[in-house]
Design a protein around this nucleic acid. Structure first.
Lengths: 205, 205
DNA sequence: GCAAAATATTGCGTGCACGCAATTTTGCGT
DNA sequence: ACGCAAAATTGCGTGCACGCAATATTTTGC
C-alpha cells in the first residue's frame, strides 16, 4: 500500500528534479540558486537539502535514474544466446548512442560543466545496483558480489571513456608524445569496455 | 630544476596534510575546523582552499598518496613470471594487509567516518594513474587506455569490498534473506578482485 | 472521529567552498 | 644590486550544506 505520505514525497522529489533540470537548461547550470529551485517546486530551501545533498544533484538525478532503468532493461532485453560481455557492452554503448529524446541536451550540459560532471560521476554508482540485478537476472548462478563488482567495473570503464572524450587528446603520465584524436563517445565507450569482456564472460560460466 | 617556489608549495602542502591528519586523529575528524588546520600550518584559511577543495581532502591526501606509491611499487616488484591478474591482486591485497606503521589508525578513522569515506573513495582515482603505469611497466605491449580501464576497475572492486566490510551483512536489492558475515578486509578485497583476473590476464596477451 | 505517535517541513545558526581583486612574495634579466 | 613581471597569499563577500530544535502534517490505535 502506497500511503499518501510516500506519494507526496515522490511528487516533491520529481518536482525538484524537473524544476532544477529546466532552470539549468534555460539559464545555464551556474546561474541557478537552490532558493530558486525550491521556490519553483513550492518548498523551502531547507527542504531541498532534505532531498538532495548538493545543488547539482537534483539536476543529475533525473537523468541518472532514467538511464539506470533504461540500461537495466537493455541488458535483460538482449537475446539469451549471446555472451554476457557482448550483451552488457552493447547495452551500454546503445545507451550512449540513443538520442533518447531531450536527454541529449541534458547530457551535453552535464558533460560541459565540471561541477555537473563530478556529480554525475558520483551518481553513476546508482546505476550499479540495477545493472548488477540485470546481470544476475540473465545468469542466476552468478554470485551477487561478483555481479556488483562487474557492474562497478563497467561504470568505472564508462567514466574513463568520458574522460577520454572530454580530454580530446590523451597524454598518459610518463607516456609522452602520444596523441589520440577522440572519436565519437559511443566508440570510445566500446573501446573502454572491451577489456572487461573476458571478466564478464568468465563470470557467466 | 626544482625552484624554491615549487619546493615551498610542496612544503606547505605537506604541512597542511600532516597538521590535518594529526588534529583529526587526536580530536576526531568532526572536531577539526579548517581554520585550525590552516593556523597549524601557518597559512590563512583561504590558502587552505587553494591546496585542498574540502575539509576532508587534506586528511585523506597523505594516506592516499602513500598508498599509491606503495601499491605501484608492489605491482612492479612482483616476480615477472606470474600472471598479471595474480600480481595485481596480490599487491592490492598486501597493501590492505600491511600494518604499514601508523597508517593503520588513519585507515580505521577514514573507514569509520562517513565524510572521510566519501572523500577517500573520490581520491582513489589518484591511485589509478600510478597503477596503470605499473601495469604497462610489466607489459609494455599493453594499450595505455586498456591499462587505465583495468586500473579503474580494480579501484572500483576495492570500493565494493570496502562497502561489504562496512556493511557487515550484505542484503543485495531484491535478494532477501541473505546474510553474509563479513570477514577480514584483505579477504574481502581478494574475493572482490578475483572476478577481474580474467580481464587482467587477457590484456597481458 | 479523535487523541497520540510518527514523520515531514521549516527557520536559524555555523562552518565551508570559492570567485574576485588587492597585496605580498619569488624569479629573472640587466 | 635593482626592478619588473609572474605567481602565490590573503581578505572579503556570497551562496551552500547541514545539525538542531520548533512546528505542521499524516498515520495509527482506539
Amino acid at each position: 500500500m502506497t500511503g499518501l505520505r510516500e506519494r507526496k514525497k515522490q511528487a516533491t522529489r520529481e518536482a525538484l528534479q524537473a524544476a532544477a533540470l529546466r532552470l539549468a537548461l534555460e539559464r545555464g547550470p551556474g546561474n541557478v540558486r537552490v532558493e530558486e529551485i525550491a521556490e519553483a517546486a513550492g518548498v523551502s530551501p531547507r527542504t531541498y537539502n532534505n532531498y538532495f545533498s548538493s545543488r547539482e544533484q537534483a539536476i543529475v538525478a533525473a537523468v541518472a535514474a532514467d538511464r539506470a532503468a533504461h540500461l537495466a532493461g537493455a541488458v535483460t532485453g538482449r537475446p539469451a544466446g549471446i555472451r554476457l560481455g557482448e550483451a552488457v557492452i552493447d547495452a551500454v554503448v546503445a545507451s550512449y548512442h540513443d538520442p533518447e529524446d531531450d536527454e541529449q541536451g541534458a547530457l551535453l550540459m552535464i558533460a560541459t560543466s565540471p561541477a555537473l560532471r563530478a556529480c554525475y560521476v558520483d551518481t553513476v554508482t546508482t546505476i550499479e545496483g540495477p545493472l548488477a540485478g540485470a546481470v544476475v537476472a540473465r545468469h542466476p548462478g552468478i554470485d551477487p558480489v561478483t555481479a556488483r563488482v562487474l557492474a562497478a567495473a563497467v561504470g568505472a570503464a564508462a567514466r574513463i571513456a568520458l574522460q577520454q572524450w572530454l580530454h580530446g587528446t590523451t597524454t598518459p603520465p610518463s607516456m609522452p608524445g602520444f596523441v589520440v584524436p577522440s572519436g565519437s563517445l559511443p566508440d570510445l565507450v566500446r573501446t573502454a569496455l572491451t577489456p572487461l569482456a573476458p571478466a564478464l564472460d568468465a563470470a557467466a560460466a
